[in-house]
C-alpha cells in the first residue's frame, strides 16, 4: 500500500497536535447510563471464578508496536502493566529501537515514541469512514486515522473513524513509519536520509537499500476470507 503518499498528504496544521500527546484528561466524562441489560433469559453465570479481584495477564492494543519495538524479554512487563505506564516503559523502547536498531535519527525516534504511547487505539464514533471490507488493498484504511489527524485515512474525504479494520495493513503502516520517509515527510522531524526503503544506493553491495517498508502481504494475497455479514471474520480454516 502506498502509505508514503498517504502520509505525505497530511495537512501541516495537524502537525503540532500530532506531536503533542500530552495534556488534558482521559476521563470518562459524564458517565451516562450504560447499555441497559435486557437479556431477561440469562440465569446466573456458569462460572466458578469467584469475586476477584482478577489480575491482568495480557494486554494489547496496537499489534506490531510491542512486537517491533520491544525485545521478547520486555513483553511480559508490557503485558501486565497499564496504558498509564506506556510513556515511562514502552516509549523508551520505541525510541531505542528506532534510533539504535533501525538507525534513524533521534528526532524521528522521539516522534514515533510520542505518537505511539499510550498504546491504545483511538476511535471517533462520529467518523464516517467505512469498514473497508471488500475493498482492494491500498485503497481503504482506518488504522491510526485519528492519531495522525487523518493522514492514514483512506479513502480521503471521509471523517476518520480510526481504530483498526480487518483489512488494515498494520504491518506495512508500522514499517513505513519506522523505516520509511513518513515522519520527515510530515514535517515532524528533519530528513535523516536513513530510510531502508529499497531506494538505489551505491554504497550498498546490492546497489540499493534493503526493503523494510513492506512485507508485501495483504489481506487479499494472504488470503483472508472476511465476510460482509456478521460476524465478518472468516470461517475457521
Amino acid at each position: 500500500m502506498n502509505m508514503q503518499i498517504v502520509f505525505r498528504s497530511i495537512a501541516a496544521a495537524s502537525v503540532a497536535a500530532f506531536a503533542l500527546a500530552a495534556c488534558g484528561g482521559g476521563g470518562s466524562g459524564s458517565a451516562a447510563a450504560p447499555n441497559p441489560p435486557t437479556n431477561g433469559g440469562a440465569s446466573g453465570p456458569s462460572t466458578a471464578l469467584g469475586n476477584g479481584p482478577f489480575l491482568q495477564l495480557d494486554r494489547l492494543n496496537r499489534p506490531a508496536v510491542s512486537e517491533l519495538f520491544a525485545t521478547f524479554a520486555q513483553h511480559q512487563k508490557n503485558n501486565t502493566d497499564t496504558p498509564d505506564d506506556d510513556v515511562a516503559i514502552l516509549k523508551p523502547e520505541i525510541i531505542s529501537f528506532t534510533e539504535n536498531v533501525a538507525g534513524r535519527s533521534s528526532a524521528i525516534a522521539t516522534v514515533l515514541g510520542t505518537v505511539l504511547t499510550p498504546d491504545v487505539q483511538i476511535v471517533d464514533m462520529n467518523g464516517t469512514s467505512s469498514s473497508c471490507i471488500g475493498t482492494a488493498p491500498g485503497t481503504c484504511n482506518n488504522y491510526l486515522g485519528i492519531e495522525t489527524g487523518g493522514a492514514t485515512q483512506l479513502p480521503k474525504g471521509l471523517k476518520p473513524f480510526g481504530g483498526r479494520a480487518l483489512t488494515d495493513d498494520i504491518i506495512d503502516t508500522s514499517l513505513m513509519a519506522t523505516f520509511g520517509p513518513v515522519i520527515p515527510a510530515l514535517g515532524l522531524a528533519p530528513e535523516d536520509n536513513k530510510e531502508s526503503d529499497g531506494r538505489a544506493d551505491a554504497s550498498y553491495p546490492s546497489g540499493h537499500r534493503p526493503d523494510l517498508v513492506s512485507d508485501h502481504v495483504s489481506w487479499q494475497t494472504a488470503p483472508k476470507h472476511f465476510t460482509t455479514t456478521f460476524p465478518y471474520f472468516g470461517a475457521p480454516q
Binding site: 482521559g26 451516562a32 476477584g52 489480575l55 492494543n61 501486565t80 496504558p83 464514533m125 462520529n126
Partner: peptide, 19 residues
Amino acid sequence: AGCGGPKIAYWVTTNTSSG
C-alpha cells in the same frame, strides 16, 4: 454514552485469579 463523548481509547486485556 458510556465514555462521555465520541472520541474513545480502546484496548483489551485478559485476567485470571492468579495473574
